[in-house]
Design a binder for these strands. Structure first.
Lengths: 171, 171
DNA sequence: TATTGTTATACTCTATAACTATA
DNA sequence: TATAGTTATAGAGTATAACAATA
């Protein structure tokens, strides 16, 4: 998977300027600028929404410099007992190779630590450091305000429905 | 926006192996491996769903080697009368710089052409070539089967609801 | 033989900045 | 001065392949 729909860099800008125009409401002067059949494709709007949500997430957790990717790694490590790198990668569905780099960064920041596994000398038991636990707690609080903002924007019912629909999603 | 949730490379694999496990249904042997609070975050599942949808889109249009990004550019050019690069970039919410590279590729394949604008010597009027129009028509047909698959999977009502909810999305 | 963590390579996407030619 | 197209650079994300240590 390398290719993507093109989509907005910043949600705010886009809304104000050009995109998300229906065929009915076009630019005034020289008649142009619809998204055409793109308007009918769920994937395009999934991508737009995902970007908007991520941007809010990033903004909300900027003060602790934790992005969605780092947050997901901290969450999986913090929610399990000494998972191996292979387990974390498998759970999140990413390459082991990529996790290596991410853990290097998290470890450099003193948030996580690779303990030798007691049962398999090839593998590491991953843990949050005390500092990592503290920061993760703060991250969860900030992420909760982010999610609350989504709920406020969508309505609780809509949010729940979206969550369920997307949770059950499998092609 | 540089950072993302970690998410599956392949939707199929993930479903079969480890991810998308609820706290109730965990791995059998040593009690591990939940996604923790990630389960509550819309962003995480938006990303998962988006990836699954894109993968199906890519698979479906593989025979003509058109990805979501190229499709979106072809669509905007094909749906408007000689839009400039700035207009296309603005509509899709991408950098002008990135569009340059994409148009280079599309032009190399003989799908699009940069015509000199009749009103502004700085800008180009973008068009689909006859070959581009033909391929775009095929792309639309394939994309429609992709979307039909989504509808079949989600149910028409759910699909419509998701499309509307995401269309109206703005943070 | 297979798996774990690791290193390396390559390509795409994203975010900038700067240049040129026009306006 | 501002804008359109372009070039260049850099950091993430993604997809592979290969290797050493261990199972």
């Amino acid at each position: 998977m390398a290719e993507r729909w093109l989509s907005p860099r910043t949600a705010g800008n886009r809304a104000a300027s050009g995109a998300r125009r229906t065929t009915a409401a076009r630019r005034s002067d020289h008649e142009p600028a619809g998204l055409g059949v793109l308007e009918n494709h769920l994937g395009y709007f999934l991508r737009r929404a995902q970007i908007a949500v991520f941007q809010d997430f990033i903004r909300t957790l900027a003060e602790i410099d934790i992005g969605p990717a780092q947050y997901s790694v901290l969450t999986v490590i913090g929610s399990n007992r000494g998972p191996s790198q292979a387990e974390v990668a498998d759970l999140l569905g990413i390459e082991r190779a990529r996790l290596v780099r991410m853990l290097d960064r998290l470890e450099r920041r003193g948030l996580t630590i690779r303990q030798p596994s007691s049962t398999d000398r090839r593998s590491h038991a991953l843990q949050l450091t005390p500092h990592g636990q503290k920061l993760f707690k703060r991250a969860k609080a900030l992420a909760a305000t982010h999610e609350a903002r989504l709920i406020g924007r969508l309505g609780a019912a809509h949010h729940k429905l979206l969550l369920k629909a997307l949770h059950d999603f499998e092609l």
